[in-house]
């Protein structure tokens, strides 16, 4: 192993530990505040962090938590996946063609304006009992978000860069891979990250209201039993799942896709060097 590689591994490990340390500190701060709240208002209003963890442990041990989590993940990810694929295709078409864009934009704004809870109600009426209500809600609510991202991306394609490609007689394949995709992706990716977070919340919401299997069902049961510790445990479970998805999938993906962007920290480092 060369010196450079060793130094690189050292830097990466240090950065990871530093980030982990910062996360740990802020989590401890939150837990401390939470504990204070518990001691002021009592266990019925706000169970202590330890009680919540114990409740979560019990839910896992009873074999309730895992199937519910998988059910919610299925609803959220299926809806997200459908919205992502359809949204990118529709949005790119709308951005590249003025006619499609003109026709689609008012519709997208309209759908974006409909409150998510209204979609849940409609979905429960339309898809009662089929278990598709949550997926449907996720799709219709996140689709406009993705479409707008992709549309902005396709619209802001740099005509000068396209001219440059033309001057070099770039074949269509090269133009797609080297210009269209990276540019549109840079706009779509933040939209996808937003849609991912949204999809999780919407799936839980639809499950609470529809009483269908999942974390939402656990939450509504906890409400019926006025079991605050259980409710907090379910919330914690949903959070852990969403955060680990973001930390383990979205962030590495972002780092891989967008090293070319100058972040503020990066720019400052380069000015110093």
């Amino acid at each position: 192993m060369t010196m450079a590689t060793t130094a690189w591994i050292g830097r990466v490990t240090a950065a990871f530990l530093w980030r982990g340390w910062a996360v740990l500190v802020s989590l401890c701060l939150l837990a401390a505040l939470w504990q204070v709240g518990h001691e002021v208002y009592g266990g019925l209003v706000l169970p202590s962090p330890m009680d919540t963890l114990r409740a979560l442990g019990a839910l896992v041990a009873e074999g309730v938590a895992l199937p519910a989590a998988l059910e919610t993940a299925r609803d959220a990810l299926m809806g997200f996946g459908l919205a992502a694929v359809a949204g990118v295709l529709i949005g790119a078409a709308a951005g590249l063609s003025v006619t499609v864009g003109r026709l689609l934009e008012p519709l997208v704004r309209f759908f974006l304006g409909v409150p998510a809870i209204a979609w849940v109600v409609l979905a429960l009426i339309w898809f009662a009992g089929s278990g598709l209500a949550a997926v449907f809600t996720v799709v219709v609510t996140t689709l406009p978000v993705v479409i707008i991202g992709a549309m902005q991306g396709a619209r802001t394609l740099d005509g000068e860069v396209l001219d440059m490609a033309r001057a070099f007689r770039a074949p269509l394949g090269v133009r797609i891979v080297d210009i269209y995709v990276p540019h549109i992706l840079s706009y779509v990716f933040p939209a996808l990250a937003t849609a991912m977070g949204l999809s999780w919340k919407l799936a839980v919401m639809a499950e609470v209201l529809g009483g269908t299997a999942g974390i939402g069902e656990g939450l509504s049961l906890a409400r019926v039993n006025i079991d605050t510790a259980d409710a907090m445990a379910w919330i914690l479970l949903a959070l852990i799942m969403l955060l680990s998805l973001e930390g383990l999938v979205m962030d590495p993906l972002r780092r891989r896709l967008e090293p070319w962007r100058a972040t503020r920290g990066q720019a400052a480092r380069e000015r110093r060097s």
Partner: peptide
């Protein structure tokens, strides 16, 4: 202007 591809 250079017209480089920013992502390359």
């Amino acid at each position: 202007d250079s017209r480089l591809l920013p992502w390359r």
